[in-house]
Amino acid sequence: MSGIDTTPLRDVAGPPEPEIPRRRRLRTLVRADRSSLVGHAGATPYVLSGPSIVMVTALLVFPVVYALWVSLFDAEFIGGPQEFVGFDQYTALLQDPDFMWSVGRTLIFVTGVLVIGVPLGLVFAFALSRATGKLRFLRGITIVPYLISGIATAVIFRLILNRDFGEVNRVLGFLGIEDVAWFSDPTLAMLASMLAQVWSDLPLVILLLLGGLMTVDAELLDAADVDGATGWKRALKVSIPLIIPQLVLATILLSYQALTSLGVILALTGGGPVDATRTLPVALYEAAFVDLETNKAMAIVIVILLFNALLTLGYWLLSRRFDLEEA
């Protein structure tokens, strides 16, 4: 016989399992795992995972430790000898009005992105969840802005928000609002940055919320339908409460992206006009690559990472609380 006889292999896997509760069965599987196939592995798992662990440690963990270390020093002049100053960099930052301005701008920027992004994402997700038949292709297109780099996004927005020929101004002019100078008015420049940021990250929000909406029980919606709750009422009273976990996670995700956004703002407004869009990432860029104040830049890095850690902590706690396997 040339065919492979599989019967002996079944024997290896052991006799058919008796009916046991699911959790118990999982545990027995795990135990079998330890003894069979791979239990006597010795050094193998370390050899297999070693390179990745070393790489991640060297490229993600070490730089942060290094940044923290460097931020404890200062130099009298660029390239001068490094002197240990403890946390002086941080106290200096707290007393620096320019830095506090950047913190304020960041808060405004993140808030604006949320205020625009979350409702927009919710409306689009609702619409997509009802899009059937040929309209389903819209789902595939939705993700496209997410595939585009922040710089290219900024270029696109520089063009469509252009004062003279931008499409947005043409529409506004049609409505009677003439000559909107998006990039020389501080408030509008901030708004333009928010819009570009929302544009590039909205796909994530939409797909996350859409995922939530798809899991909303159709029977529940039908029941609401029968009870006379249709349209807005159904959405507000039935669907939205059910996707609160996704909404919260989408909010955190958007704030995370906005907090660490450099390319979009730098290429769109360069932090201007008159520092209107000089958020923390822009301040970091200027300290490191324009003013060449490395020690100060490292302190800003740590501050940004702290803000970010707060968000991550929130994300983690909430995703655990909502027990979201998929998000």
């Binding site: 942060v64 290094y66 890095v301 991550t312």
Partner: peptide, 17 residues
């Protein structure tokens, strides 16, 4: 880790390294 340490946070330290 990727959530905790975004590329922006690595930009300056990796540059110095």
């Amino acid at each position: 880790l990727p959530r905790l340490i975004p590329g922006l946070g690595l930009m300056v330290p990796l540059y110095r390294i």
